[in-house]
């Protein structure tokens, strides 16, 4: 297949959600996101109802891609972390296992030092989970959720 798909299973999703929920509390953050490098939101926790998470995910991935492009021009493999400081909100972005992006949004109730420290531990946990997930997705014996969908199902989607 030209374009292998990424599949998120219940088991790994719950593990990821646990790490993210824990990080919100331990880092005293407002919210935490996990974003795919292609801009798709994988998990979120904290105060996310007031945020446009889809747009944030897409822009974060664009940001990481642009920074990665800069790194390449400077003969660096990657700039793994970024920090944006605002008046009320700050954003700490880090690459996990060069595969997904961890985004922490925090305010004056936390500090960059604390966020960095907590993110380090969470990154390691997330890295293990995503490695296991990748092995599972690549396993040819795993059922694809798409196998039973028919051409007619696809056609029906586009019948006005």
């Amino acid at each position: 297949m030209v374009n292998p798909q990424m599949v998120m299973y219940e088991e790994e999703f719950n593990q990821i959600q646990t790490v993210v929920d824990h990080l919100v509390k331990s880092a005293n953050a407002k919210s935490v996101f996990i974003v795919d490098k292609n801009g798709q939101l994988i998990a979120a926790s904290g105060d996310v109802d007031s945020l446009d998470t889809t747009s944030l995910a897409s822009l974060t991935a664009g940001n990481i891609a642009a920074t990665g492009g800069m790194a390449k021009l400077l003969k660096e493999s990657e700039f793994a972390t970024q920090f944006h400081e605002g008046e009320r909100a700050n954003v700490y972005i880090t690459l996990v296992g060069n595969r997904v992006i961890l985004v922490v949004i925090f305010d004056a109730k936390s500090s960059l030092g604390l966020v960095r420290l907590r993110v380090k531990k969470s990154s390691e946990e997330l890295n293990h989970i995503f490695e296991a997930l990748l092995r599972k997705v690549q396993d040819p014996n795993t059922d694809s959720p798409f196998a039973e969908i028919t051409d007619a199902d696809i056609d029906n989607l586009f019948n006005d």
Partner: peptide
């Protein structure tokens, strides 16, 4: 690369 989330029952594609 499409992203299929079995928990949220979502298929995400990029065009």
């Amino acid at each position: 690369m499409s992203f299929i989330n079995l928990m949220a029952r979502e298929i995400n594609c990029k065009i």
